[in-house]
Design a protein around this nucleic acid. Structure first.
Lengths: 339, 339
DNA sequence: CGGGTGGATGGGAGCGCTCCCACGCCACAT
DNA sequence: ATGTGGCGTGGGAGCGCTCCCATCCACCCG
């Protein structure tokens, strides 16, 4: 059993050693103002000498915070395979570590695990929740809020998202891609969208349309095909586009993976990229770099999104920032040979 | 503040409702045998009616376990960008969820974060530790053990690893790659190794040599170049190999990333893959599939390794399995066009 | 010079659980 | 009938903290 009773020093022992009361030590540790400089020093010394580390379980039980937040990832997503989440995790982790908070990772696969997770929340295990890749009709964010727990989403569910979120500028991504393509002299620019029940996909599509308008190019519904962010979806959509208008000279795919699929189909149809058709993706993932030709792609500041999410959550937990904030981070076009 | 005092039911309330004592409820929850069938039922009903969920903080404080394990990832690794860790996480998470344990993710970047982590351990925050990507001279595993905490590594530091670990069959990976290449009629088979201070790299190299011997091929030290698991390292090593023996007809790269680098150099030298030179990597990562030509690669059962690690740790925590176990999981060659 | 004021302080009272001891009860042996 | 053992059980005693109230002291005002 876990019976390793390391005789770790307790608050009380620190207090004894410093010649003060328990309350004072607690105040020092929690950075309360109302402590004399002298007491602060004595306690600090005692802590150092004893190598005291507060017991978090006791703290969680007595207070009502846990110093931990959950990062929830619904793993239904094939997207999980992408480096995307790793970058999010990296950002979140950095921000949390700075605040001495712990990161609890929860992958939700099955309905059962989903329920188990709800129990966690109910059991007061975390101070807040970070949700990644939420779908349009996912009730989880609202459930979390209903429990009174702070929450921050990565990407909103809809433009009316009531819960705080951090998103990238999807509209801007579409616009910049199209502007770039138009600037290269392309004038029959098609797009492969993501699943339209996701706000990110709609945003990129809207950006695509704005981009066309700004470039003075006519919108043509035949140049729009719906994908699902997967490679295979990209292939299907590309075939559809080719069948509808064989004269297209550029494609803006709303994800790198779909661009990969599109490229394969273009090749198979004897079209050269970028000679005949220019191609732009979104994500700037490693595959984009390794594709042949290397793929022009719109980069999202993923790690920064993670950091921002964590920061937002921390502020909510601290009690500032009560009304939900909505942050949108800028994207950046990375030009490579495919366009 | 975190003042959401949801009036969640406590053990005591469950006891009252079930008409039994606190002790009995506790026994039921913890699956102790010494409880009458009747009491068990009454308690079960009360729990369901009240929607009782045990408070983990209280449990951790009273007992001395936390029902949480830490997954530690030293992020010095560029490898973190790969899907590798995600798969590990997936496996670990699945196994832990089944045991109703929580997963605490800890990325260690700086020396400071490393120290903070040691404090965690000392503060009795977790019941066990999973360590990923440990280097030859990393003291962390020993420190964890010194604290009396169960630990399981992903990959051993050396053949004499004292701590429990789960690894993939690196020697087998090398052997199968070479056997495959030899079977295709190649007889000047080179290898690009990983950094030789890593056991995985040494293992793959050893497998390469065994493979040559088994195929009746002579070993030639000029056909061995040292890389570092990165794309750039692969490029450098490939140039070195080409300079040393221009007559090589196959390359076994100890990672997909290095194979990518090698491929670029081969191309640049006007060599065709697989026409002139056959190429095999290790990891079966997504880039392998998207490479042109698609890369033959040795697949490791990464997710399964994660699951196995977690399982091993859980058993250690439960008190079984006191002497460290060393598990080696088989690999599998995935043949594609590059060989 | 007494009462007032406010900041620093000590320590009691829990937080919700597990551990464990002592108690009652029953079946069996004497 | 009395003794013995074991099982199921209740509940006291903490685990190490935070919260909060009462206390104390120094200093200020009228």
């Amino acid at each position: 059993m876990g019976g390793r009773q390391t005789g770790r020093p307790t608050l009380e022992e620190v207090a004894a050693r410093a010649g003060v009361g328990r309350g004072t030590v607690s105040r020092v540790i929690n950075g309360s103002s109302r402590v004399s400089e002298q007491a602060k020093e004595a306690v600090g010394r005692a802590i150092a000498e004893l190598g005291y580390v507060p017991n978090r379980a006791a703290r969680a039980l007595a207070g009502s915070r846990t110093d931990a937040v959950a990062l929830v990832v619904p793993e239904t997503e094939a997207r999980l395979a992408e480096p995307y989440f790793l970058d999010i995790i990296r950002g979140v982790s950095a921000e949390l570590a700075a605040a001495d908070m712990q990161l609890l990772l929860t992958l939700i696969r099955t309905e059962q695990e989903r329920q188990r997770f709800e129990q966690y929340l109910a059991a007061q295990r975390v101070d807040g929740v970070l949700l990644v890749s939420v779908h349009r009709d996912d009730p989880l964010p609202d459930q979390v809020r209903a429990l009174g727990l702070p929450a921050v989403l990565n990407g909103r569910r809809s433009p009316q998202e009531p819960v705080a979120y951090v998103d990238s500028d999807n509209v801007g991504a579409g616009r910049s891609a199209v502007a770039h393509l138009a600037g290269r002299g392309r004038c029959r620019i098609a797009t492969i969208t993501g699943p339209l029940d996701m706000d990110a996909a709609r945003g990129r599509l809207a950006g695509y349309r704005q981009g066309l308008a700004e470039a003075g190019l006519p919108a043509d519904e035949l140049l729009v095909a719906t994908g699902d962010f997967t490679e295979d979806g990209g292939r299907r959509a590309m075939r559809e586009l080719l069948a509808q208008c064989s004269d297209l000279d550029a494609v803006f795919a709303a994800s790198d993976l779909m661009a990969v699929g599109a490229l394969a189909v273009l090749r198979a149809s004897g079209l050269d990229v970028p000679g005949d058709v220019a191609l732009v993706g979104v994500d700037d993932s490693p595959v984009a770099r390794h594709l042949d030709p290397p793929l022009t792609s719109v980069r999202q500041p993923i790690e920064e999104m993670g950091r921002t999410m964590a920061g937002l959550l921390l502020r909510q937990i601290a009690g500032e920032d009560v009304e939900p904030s909505h942050l949108v981070l800028p994207t950046e076009l990375v030009v490579r040979k495919s366009s």
